[in-house]
């Protein structure tokens, strides 16, 4: 499996990680190497196998959908790089 620069650019956009053009080639080579190594899983017969989607064999519990620790805007915002008037501040998203 070999990833081309366009694929790396697409994944990087999906992942919201800026990859400079100069680094695309090197990233493609490393990621292609890892993916080729992973491809060996194709040899394993997994017909009729139920996928294991979590780490536990216990049944996951239900819980009430209620606020447990609300009403603490100051604590919620305490680590924000930028906050104002009880809100997180982000670059303008509406024109």
């Amino acid at each position: 499996m070999s990833l081309d620069n366009a694929t790396i650019r697409r994944i990087a956009t999906l992942a919201r990680i800026e990859v400079p053009a100069a680094e695309l080639e090197a990233a493609a080579a490393k990621l292609s190497g890892i993916l080729s190594w992973i491809e060996q899983l194709r040899e394993v017969n997994t017909d009729n196998v139920t996928p294991m989607s979590g780490g536990t064999d216990l049944k996951l519990p239900w819980r009430a959908d209620i606020v447990t620790e609300g009403g603490q805007p100051d604590q919620v915002l305490a680590n924000a790089p930028e906050a104002h008037g009880g809100f997180f501040v982000v670059p303008k998203v509406v024109e």
Binding site: T7, I11, A27, K30, L31, L35
Partner: peptide, 17 residues
């Protein structure tokens, strides 16, 4: 891009793919 190191970025990209 600035906050994550090389190995972390690599794994995020693999995982995204």
């Amino acid at each position: 891009a600035a906050g994550f190191g090389t190995e972390v970025k690599r794994r995020i990209l693999i995982g995204t793919y």
